[in-house]
Amino acid sequence: MLTAVIRANGRAEALAATLSVLIPAVADGVIGHAVVIGAEGDAETLRLADATGASYVAARNGASWSLGVAQARGDWVLLLEAGDLPEPHWVASIERHLLIAATTPALMPLRGLAALREWGAVSLRSRRVRAGLIAPKKQLLSGRLPASPRRLAVGRERALA
């Protein structure tokens, strides 16, 4: 089972959109837990996390992923920014990846104009921890992946940016 870790960055509408896309994966048993990383004193983000049953981690601005990943209950983690909306059939794509490449990190690439910077980093074989990654918790806590991620056929859009 995956834990979804979402960086809210103070955008309540974007966070609500991302959380709503995760609901079918929770119903299917693919996502067992969610952690929202929000700014200290962000009452709206805390309220949204609480309403959806997600854990909430308060962080100073520019928080790293490690705060949320440390709270993950599962061995595998999906990292998302508030506003990330995985494309249809993303659950099946992730399940297939986990069955075939049990220790290899994967990336749900961004689509559209926002994808340019990410595409460049992935093309240069960057092993930096970033949104869209599906990886073992231990790898993410190290702050750097042991290998560049495999790109999944299914991607994600960034809504409400």
Rank of each mutant, 00 (worst) to 15 (best):
A8Q: 09
R111A: 12
G112K: 11
E157R: 15
V26G: 04
T3S: 12
G83H: 06
V91H: 04
P105G: 06
D75H: 09
A70M: 09
G38E: 09
A25I: 02
V26R: 15
L107D: 06
L152N: 05
R47C: 05
R73G: 14
D42H: 02
A72M: 01
S64W: 13
L78G: 03
L79G: 12
G29R: 12
R7W: 04
V21D: 04
T3L: 02
R127S: 12
G53E: 07
G120W: 12
G29A: 11
L15H: 10
A54P: 08
G132V: 09
E157V: 14
D28N: 14
L133Q: 09
R144S: 13
G53F: 07
V69I: 04
T3Y: 04
S126G: 11
A114H: 12
E118Q: 15
G29P: 10
D42F: 01
T3P: 02
S66I: 06
H89M: 12
Q139T: 02
E157K: 14
R11C: 07
G120R: 14
A58T: 08
G10E: 02
L22Q: 09
V154W: 05
L80T: 11
V122D: 05
T52E: 10
V69S: 00
E95I: 11
I94P: 00
S66N: 10
L141I: 01
K138N: 13
A54Q: 08
E40L: 08
G120K: 09
L80K: 13
Q139Y: 06
A58S: 15
D42M: 01
H97Y: 04
R111L: 12
L79D: 10
D28K: 15
A72N: 02
T103R: 08
T52K: 00
A72K: 02
L46G: 12
